[in-house]
Write a protein that binds this DNA or RNA. Sequence first.
DNA 1: GTTTAATATAGATATTTATCTATCTATGCA
DNA 2: TGCATAGATAGATAAATATCTATATTAAAC
Lengths: 310, 310
Amino acid sequence: MSQIATLRQLQILLALKQHGSITAASEALYLTQPTVSMQLKSLADKVGLPLYQQTNKVLTFTDAGLELLKTAQEVVNSFERLEMNLAGLKGLTAGTLKIAVVSTAKYFIPHLLGEFCKLYPDVDVNFSVGNRQQIIDRFNDNRDDFYVFTYPPRQAPIKTHKFLQNPLVAIAHPEHELFKKEKVTLQEFAKQPYLMRERGSGTRYAIENFMREHDIQLNIRMIIESNEAIRHSVMSELGVTILSAYTLAYGEDTGLKVLPVEGLPIQSQWYLAHYRGKKLSPIAERFLQWVLEEGSQQLELESKRVLGRQ
Amino acid sequence: MSQIATLRQLQILLALKQHGSITAASEALYLTQPTVSMQLKSLADKVGLPLYQQTNKVLTFTDAGLELLKTAQEVVNSFERLEMNLAGLKGLTAGTLKIAVVSTAKYFIPHLLGEFCKLYPDVDVNFSVGNRQQIIDRFNDNRDDFYVFTYPPRQAPIKTHKFLQNPLVAIAHPEHELFKKEKVTLQEFAKQPYLMRERGSGTRYAIENFMREHDIQLNIRMIIESNEAIRHSVMSELGVTILSAYTLAYGEDTGLKVLPVEGLPIQSQWYLAHYRGKKLSPIAERFLQWVLEEGSQQLELESKRVLGRQ
DNA sequence: GTTTAATATAGATATTTATCTATCTATGCA
DNA sequence: TGCATAGATAGATAAATATCTATATTAAAC
């Protein structure tokens, strides 16, 4: 594109059209009159045709001048549309995203947020972690855009979206005697000292439901409120437990191994929840859409890779 | 218009789209790779959003990048249309215009051509002057685009356009005795020694027709083949004559004055003629259109001003 | 782990664009 | 004829754009 006109020259030409004289146009553009005169002359020289005529104080445009005005207006319109569309994208792409997650999700959510922030680098993230009750409290206080649960509260007005499978697997110390068997029955597993999460934990709910359905009574040895404490207790051969495969995948897994117990893994879901009546911010809307369409798929591919290492 | 993108940057972005990689785009544009990389980075910085992503050797555009590509294509299209339209105008606006005029017209036609050449400065003009017979010969030889007559030949194939009134006025030396009368009759005027144009002159035809209609016999003293010679003869008190007011308006008029003879001025026309079957060049077409729409009006305004000085 | 290819960054320079002050020219009006 | 106004031109400078060479970084393939 050999450049016949600069954007500035087109702008000046439009000002001449709008204001009807070189001096008026220069004032409107906060330039001196010779600047405008010379830019228009330069433009006419490049075009090779006069752009306007002055007869008796009346400035009229030539055919060439009118063509340039048309192009100038088209170009200005294109850039204005661009600015508006980019502003729209920036509205989608900037701002603060507030998300609170139950502690089981704290290992993989950063990976999800990381991918999203690569796409929208201007986004700030407010990331909170807590047990289920704490997250429910935050939800009741309407403190965040989103909440991640394995077992969302049943209270209204909540809107939940399943976005990821959450398989719960049994784990034990790698030297545990049950690894000598090719297959472990639920009854055999239930006889082991079981390390249980605290009441209110979504994982606990899912486990208790599963066991109730299979008429199994776990041999609960301890109640532990921390995923890290549970993992280290298992490593120390204090007992066995069931937890999210994602906790295993993304956390430190040395000294832990998945027990091949019949009926497991327990299938459950990760839910992304938000206040039903709340108007989401553009960036929150975009995050939701992205998670449902792309983010969860990326996470599943990655978790398969991580889990496949065992 | 705060400039979010330069035309060059938009061009580079389109090349990236077309060629799929920075290196390929730089080769296509005969630039080095860092140039392209930096221009795109500068553009992304100004936009405030990433324009593309690279995953596994595949370059994909972001939403912002796609918006910019759309604008880039619009702008390129606008400039291409502009170039084509300007080229069309230049086709109309360059070339040689050939015009031959009877000698009476030689005083004002340059004024007409001058105005036209201000609008189309790239036009060359081939301007010939001759008496009526010479111009008819040129017409028969098809040597020019246009011919200016007061009394066009009746032969086919000619196409004539009336473009200007041509009033014929009587003139005498300012000290002539007839100026003592408020009004001069045709009979009184006919008694004066009359300086006549040569046979074949369009002005002579018109005068002879007029006198024949009014049953007047002029007292012809001399036949003179040159407008200049006639004017100087009148100045020298050798006689009176009738000639085009335009000759008076644009020529030297010191020592000449219009006689207020009843029935005068004789109304006649200037004709712009061209060969009927001849395909006119773009610039000739444009000239014809301009003369009929604008040029003649300008000439009438100007001749009123000039004639009004007497 | 090494090599290759692609991209990004640093630093410098050349070119173009844009603008200013000063002055000249042209036109209209009193 | 003189004055006021508008536009054009001359000369100079500042700012922005565009580009290069050299090198560092990154990612993919072997």
